[in-house]
């Protein structure tokens, strides 16, 4: 079973939709329709709280304030109030994120994922991104366990992208990270190096071109 998420939302239709989407995304949901101060141990352990602000019973901000006296569980605020003072107050009280209504369910699920994403525990200096593994001290790259024959620049490029895998990075940033500005520090040269690197990485298309930005190292499935 997925992680448990506590939802406090008084609107039954919206609450039902959120619970449905969380369930589809693999989470277990616990849904309260009235605001109440969450006492330690009152509900089964939950990994995240999705909290509406305008609630019958106890107001959302008060729930958050009370929760923060004993717990660091991530809190995502849902509110129809789109003003800075509310957002700032919620963030100052310890909220981790703030979403204004209306929102797309996908957006909510992405935010939940982003909050629950845990850093992958790795052996020191050893980076694993899907089928790709990088031995940083040894400066060796493997795909599916097979060593790649990379030049110094290619390894630097791959390591830079691996450090921010899943994110689009600009050409300029990659040039800064991997190329010598005095010799070959141009974006055109970068494209040539990326082209070589792609060939060496094989058919997995691990490096994506991101339109208008640069490149991204895809977070592939681990084998």
């Amino acid at each position: 079973m997925g992680e448990r998420i506590l939802l406090i939302e008084d609107d039954r239709e919206l609450g039902r939709q959120i619970v449905d989407h969380l369930t589809k995304a693999g989470f277990q949901s616990l849904w309260l329709t009235e605001g109440e101060l969450l006492l330690p141990g009152a509900y089964p352990d939950y990994s995240m709280l999705i909290l509406d602000l305008m609630l019958p019973g106890v107001w959302g901000m008060d729930i958050l304030k009370h929760l923060r006296t004993y717990s660091d569980v991530p809190v995502l605020i849902l509110s129809a109030r789109n003003n800075t003072s509310d957002k700032v107050r919620a963030l100052k009280l310890g909220a981790d994120d703030y979403m204004t209504k209306p929102f797309w369910p996908e957006e909510l699920i992405e935010r939940v994922y982003a909050r629950l994403r845990r850093p992958v525990m790795q052996r020191k200096g050893f980076l694993t991104i899907g089928v790709l593994q990088l031995d940083m001290p040894g400066r060796i790259a493997f795909v599916r366990g097979k060593t790649l024959d990379l030049t110094k620049v290619e390894f630097e490029l791959l390591a830079a992208m691996a450090r921010r895998s899943g994110e689009a990075v600009t050409r300029a940033w990659l040039v800064d990270q991997a190329l010598d500005p005095d010799k070959e520090g141009t974006e055109r040269t970068l494209d040539v190096h990326i082209s070589h690197l792609r060939k060496k990485l094989g058919s997995d298309k691990l490096i994506e071109t991101v339109w208008g930005i640069g490149y991204r190292l895809r977070v592939g499935e681990e084998e």
Binding site: R164, E167, A168, V169, T170, W173, V210, W211, G212, I213, G214, R216
Partner: peptide
């Protein structure tokens, strides 16, 4: 397609 790039 919508994408973004932000500094580290």
């Amino acid at each position: 397609s919508i994408d973004y790039a932000v500094p580290e």
